[in-house]
Design a binder for these strands. Sequence first.
DNA 1: CTCCTTAGTAAGGTAACCTGAATATAATGC
DNA 2: GCATTATATTCAGGTTACCTTACTAAGGAG
Lengths: 141, 141
Amino acid sequence: MAETHPPHVVAQLYEAYLRLSDFVFDAGKRFDDRLRPAHSAVFFHMEHEGIRLSRLAEKAQMTPQAMGELVDQLEEMGCLRRIPDPADRRAKLIVFTELGDKALLIGYSAIDAVEHRLATLLGDDGFEALRTTLNRIRTEF
Amino acid sequence: MAETHPPHVVAQLYEAYLRLSDFVFDAGKRFDDRLRPAHSAVFFHMEHEGIRLSRLAEKAQMTPQAMGELVDQLEEMGCLRRIPDPADRRAKLIVFTELGDKALLIGYSAIDAVEHRLATLLGDDGFEALRTTLNRIRTEF
DNA sequence: CTCCTTAGTAAGGTAACCTGAATATAATGC
DNA sequence: GCATTATATTCAGGTTACCTTACTAAGGAG
């Protein structure tokens, strides 16, 4: 129940997530201080060829309205652009700008750095064991 | 990057946390449907001899104002009571009611159930290995 | 007793979502 | 080929979980 004594697994998982994710979010913030954790859902579910808002929202499991606001903000930062979808005049395709590509790369390298550091801390075997365990929780719990 | 293929560790940790915590929050919701995840911070950091708002807020790493609102809501649900602190007339002690004790027990058993189920899934060794790994991340990453 | 600090609270703001409703276009039935 | 229904997006406004600023009441130091 306390924080300095080992808490239960659920809290442990959350703490570990917060600790690791901080590095990634900080990297984003250094790139553009308007970037917030919520925007990661956009980068995570984007598709390079372009993607419709409704599909992006569905993949991120949120409403198109909520996703639309995140896309608005990233558009204002210059990371994304909305272009008309040639296949459907109601729709727009959300695509990366060059700046957006850069931001994505920065995110990838931050994640890579975290994974490398974690593999160093736990050893390659320990790191793989953690991934396997977490994957079993996702698929079998 | 996708969700059906194994994502990076950071996302894996978050997904695992969400999956396990759902069981605990659902148990709370069944007890009183006004109970929300935010209230768990109160139960997590309570002290059954009574605790001051400022200390509770500090332990939960939030402002006294934010914690005060959560305590207001739990008081309205009948889980907590504020009594004058005999040692300082500015302060109040937040204490559990009988209903609050019951809620706490329900939370404990939900966490226990999750941990048992996880130990069954991973085996006792796998479960302990996970706890050890998560603890190393907390202390050494 | 005055001065500064601490405990709590009130008022109002922001971020990250949500629901409901409006608009434009597309697809379908007859 | 036109009316009906469905889909893509957007607008307006609400809720939750926080925050900051500013106030009041009470305690402690000199």
